[in-house]
């Protein structure tokens, strides 16, 4: 596998893997208005990095556990009638702050903090690719398996219950999927930009979708194209890769929104077509 010797190819593979899972999951994050939820979970993962380095365990494992803990905490609290936007704002930023403080205590280990905050996609190993793809496929299988139930629970919890679906269980599955995506995406885009990988492709796809399935598929394609274009762009412009991917995604989103606006006004002018 000589191809994998090329760091650009490895980066593209890792990025596509993340987009594959993040984009369809991101649709649920958008539909359920969980944007801050994703942010808080992602930010908490820096604490996971610190803990993993302290106890000298696999970083992916540490991140997965803290992301899961954070996501479950929020899930539990959200049912208790707290002001959720405030709560999430507090949790997201305090988790990040505590994580950064914890990392600074690590003496002897030279930690490249920037790599965790903004990702280090050009340095992914074959092992990293294997982890990203395993996680991504697991998330896709989860979403595929529960799709109809997840969608019904997202629409309305009472309607779901009347159909014999437990909304809490579906919420738990999304929480688990989110933790996995955060854990695999940290190397690619870093904790600060993971939420962007979830939200931007989904928001872009919304303009051209009439059904949830179409939006999910379109978001996945947009996510993958964005990753490839972002990596290529960062190579040519010599810019940091994670932020470049997100910037490309944002440009796509703006272009798609303008296009949708233009198409909409065109349709209004010529209603017979």
């Amino acid at each position: 596998m000589n191809m994998l010797d090329d760091f650009m190819v490895r980066a593209a593979l890792a990025g596509i893997g993340v987009a594959l899972a993040a984009a369809p999951l991101g649709c649920f994050v958008v539909w359920r208005r969980m944007a801050y939820f994703g942010d808080a979970t992602a930010h908490a993962s820096i604490l996971g990095v610190a803990l993993a380095l302290t106890f000298d365990v696999w970083i992916f494992g540490g991140v997965l556990v803290t992301a899961l803990l954070m996501a479950s905490t929020i899930s539990v609290l959200s049912g208790r009638g707290y002001a959720m936007d405030t709560m999430l704002g507090v949790l997201a930023h305090s988790a990040l702050a505590f994580g950064l403080v914890a990392v600074s205590f690590l003496q002897g280990v030279r930690v490249d903090l920037m790599a965790y905050l903004f990702g280090d996609i050009l340095a992914v190993s074959r092992m990293d690719i294997a982890v990203v793809w395993s996680g991504a496929l697991l998330v896709l299988v989860l979403l595929w398996w529960r799709w109809s139930s997840l969608l019904t629970a997202t629409l309305n919890p009472e309607l779901a219950r009347a159909s014999g679906i437990a909304p809490q269980r579906e919420q738990l599955i999304l929480t688990l999927a989110l933790a996995i995506v955060v854990a695999v995406a940290i190397k690619v885009v870093g904790v600060l930009l993971i939420a962007a990988m979830l939200l931007i492709p989904a928001a872009t796809a919304r303009n051209f979708s009439s059904t949830p399935e179409r939006m999910a598929v379109l978001a996945t394609l947009i996510g993958m194209v964005t990753v490839i274009a972002g990596i290529a762009g960062s190579f040519h412009l010599d810019t940091p890769t994670g932020p470049t991917i997100v910037s490309v995604g944002t440009l796509c989103f703006v272009a798609a929104s303008l296009l949708a606006l233009a198409l909409g006004s065109l349709r209004r002018k010529n209603p017979q077509r």
């Binding site: 539909w31 979708s209 949830p212 179409r214």
Partner: peptide, 8 residues
Amino acid sequence: IDPTLPLT
């Protein structure tokens, strides 16, 4: 129904 959710 959240406007972000396309649904026929």
